[in-house]
């Protein structure tokens, strides 16, 4: 019975793969030339890198919804009933080597995050990459036993988690009074994008680290 099911599933997915490959090979050229449109509008976007321009300007509402989804995922994890282990330290203390390394690396990682955020305006980089580096620093600190897991985030932490979304919504709402959602006035675009990206970096770092640190707090059941 199980073998029959396996054969059925494998032949179905095999057929799916063939159809997908055929449709990729048979795909007609796109009628809309998006790269040219982005290049043509790049000067008005306030940044010099096309991907950042698309993320924060041309399709800014995607990014607005994305940070909302991230916050929602973390809230969902916090809402689950958990058997909190309390803030007791990790059972096995980390080696002094790892702790020293984590203490040395964390300031450097904050510096790298700041650089990546700033570089996003004109080369690959931006808020998401910078937030990921910040979150990596948080996870490293936790693994080295220097940062406790999150049982319930306090007031300051909650404010930090929500900053990115709130600043983004505030900018969007202010611009709504001018007419269109997230259509930056010319001349202000670069500064507004930097403000949004800086607050996004902070919140993303905290949220992504939180996704790990909240899970790390639940007690493993034997």
């Amino acid at each position: 019975m199980k073998a029959l099911l396996n054969i059925a599933v494998l032949s179905l997915t095999g057929a799916l793969g063939l159809v997908l490959a055929w449709s990729i090979l048979d795909l007609p050229a796109s009628a809309v030339r998006l790269p040219e449109q982005v290049t043509a509008q790049l000067d008005m976007s306030g940044v010099a890198h096309p991907v950042t321009a698309v993320l924060l300007n041309f399709r800014g509402y995607d990014t607005l919804l994305e940070i909302a989804v991230l916050l929602l995922a973390l809230l969902g994890m916090l809402a689950l009933p958990r058997q909190a282990s309390g803030s007791k330290p990790r059972p096995v203390p980390a080696s002094p080597m790892l702790q020293t390394l984590a203490r040395l690396l964390t300031p450097l990682m904050v510096l790298v995050a700041g650089y990546v955020l700033w570089a996003g305006a004109h080369r690959p980089g931006g808020a998401f990459q910078a937030g990921a580096v910040l979150a990596g620093a948080g996870v490293l600190l936790h693994l080295a036993g220097l940062l406790p897991a999150w049982a319930t985030p306090g007031r300051a932490l909650r404010a930090g988690l929500a900053t990115g979304l709130l600043v983004f919504i505030a900018v969007a709402a202010t611009l709504m009074t001018q007419g269109t959602l997230l259509q930056y006035p010319p001349g202000w675009a670069g500064a507004l994008i930097l403000v949004i990206e800086a607050s996004l970096t902070l919140s993303l770092g905290l949220i992504l680290a939180g996704l790990y640190l909240v899970l790390a707090d639940s007690k493993v059941q034997a």
């Binding site: 790269p35 041309f58 990014t63």
Partner: peptide
């Protein structure tokens, strides 16, 4: 750049 931004998201 548009699909690249979508993939990043």
């Amino acid at each position: 750049p548009v699909p690249q931004a979508m993939v990043l998201t």
